[in-house]
Design a protein around this nucleic acid. Structure first.
Length: 206
DNA sequence: ATATCGATTATCT
DNA sequence: GATAATCGATATG
C-alpha cells in the first residue's frame, strides 16, 4: 500500500507534538528507478526557543535558514566531518524548530540501502545497522546537504517525502536526547518502545 | 560486555 | 582555534 503524504499543517506546530506524531510514519525516497521506504521509529525534537542544543540557537544563518522557514522542509546538516543528518522543519514560517530523524525500520529497497551503506547483508543479517542512527539512515537514503537540504517533504513529487499508511504505533517512550552536551537533560527523544530498530546497543532481555 | 579514540569539515567564537 | 544533534574500529575486562 502506498503511503499518502502528510500535509504542511501537520508540521506547523510545536516540534514535540510533531515528533510524537511522526513515529510510525514512513520516509520515502523516489528517485528514478530508486524506491526506498522505511518506518520512523526514533526522533528527537529541537525547539526554537530555550533550547541551547538546537542549531537554531545560533540564529538564522545560511546553515540554519530552513529551520526558520515554513514547515515541512528538509534541514540537512553535516557533522563530525563525516555524517549527514536529516530533520524536518516545524512551526510556522519565521519560527525555528525541527525534528531530527534518529532511526528507521527498513521496509522496501533494502538491498539498495545495504549497497549505499556498503554492508554485506547476508552474513550478519543485521538490518539494524542499515538505518539505526541518524548518520546511518542518511547514508542508506543517500541524503546529503547539497542534494536534499530545503526539499519539500510534503510532496510526493519530491525525491524525498514523508507519508502515512495504516500502521498504528504501539507504546511511545520518551527519554533524554542522545549525543548532545548542551541541554542534555530535557526529555525530547521519542521512540517506539517495541521496535528493535531504535538506535543504541541491541536490546537485551531482562 | 564497555571504553576510548580517530576521522574530517562546516561553522562559530 | 575549538567544537560538533556520529560512526566504526580497536582495546580491554
Amino acid at each position: 500500500m502506498t503511503p499518502t503524504p502528510l500535509p504542511r499543517p501537520f508540521y506547523s506546530r510545536d516540534p514535540r507534538r510533531v515528533a510524537r506524531a511522526l513515529l510510525g510514519k514512513v520516509l520515502l525516497r523516489d528517485d528514478g528507478p530508486l524506491h526506498l521506504s522505511a518506518r520512523i521509529v526514533e526522533v528527537e525534537a529541537y525547539l526554537g526557543k530555550n533550547d541551547l542544543a538546537a542549531h537554531s540557537a545560533a540564529g538564522n544563518t545560511a546553515r540554519t535558514a530552513v529551520l526558520f522557514g515554513p514547515p515541512g522542509y528538509a534541514y540537512v546538516y553535516f557533522i563530525y566531518g563525516n555524517h549527514y543528518c536529516l530533520n524536518v522543519s516545524c512551526e510556522p514560517d519565521g519560527k525555528p524548530g525541527g525534528v531530527l530523524f534518529r532511526a528507521l525500520e527498513p521496509l522496501t529497497g533494502i538491498d539498495a540501502m545495504a549497497r549505499a551503506r556498503k554492508i554485506n547483508l547476508s552474513s550478519p543479517r543485521d538490518l539494524r545497522s542499515l538505518t539505526s542512527g541518524p548518520g546511518r539512515l542518511a547514508q542508506a537514503f543517500g541524503i546529503t546537504r547539497p542534494r536534499d537540504n530545503g526539499l519539500d517533504l510534503t510532496s510526493p513529487s519530491s525525491t524525498l517525502w514523508i507519508g502515512e499508511d495504516s500502521f498504528r504505533p504501539g507504546k511511545i517512550q520518551v527519554t533524554p536526547r542522545i549525543g548532545i552536551r548542551k541541554a542534555a537533560d530535557h526529555p525530547l527523544r521519542y521512540i517506539l518502545a517495541a521496535s528493535p530498530f531504535v538506535s543504541g546497543p541491541k536490546p537485551r532481555k531482562a
